[in-house]
């Protein structure tokens, strides 16, 4: 089974989502925005980005990529 460009894009998107979910580049930053450390705001923002990404994935390519219509049938 060959994967389409679209599938690889999702792989890339999830890789980015995981890589930047812990703000390691803000590690040890002392900046405080509105009373909270800036890395905490990154976390809040990133969770929103993640929610939107997952929502989009679930609405577009999820069932097709999981083979939801063929499960139990041909290729497992």
């Amino acid at each position: 089974m060959t994967r389409s460009v679209r599938d690889w894009l999702w792989v890339l998107v999830f890789a980015i989502l995981i890589t930047f979910s812990v703000p390691w580049f803000l590690w040890g930053s002392a900046s405080v925005v509105a009373g909270l450390p800036v890395w905490l705001w990154w976390h809040v923002g990133w969770m929103c980005v993640a929610s939107a990404t997952f929502a989009l994935f679930a609405r577009t390519d999820w069932d097709r990529m999981m083979g939801a219509d063929t499960a139990g049938g041909g290729e497992l």
Partner: peptide, 13 residues
């Protein structure tokens, strides 16, 4: 999303 759902589908079938 990637493993759990598929596992559920296969497990059900």
């Amino acid at each position: 999303y990637v493993i759990g759902y598929r596992q559920w589908l296969i497990g059900r079938a």
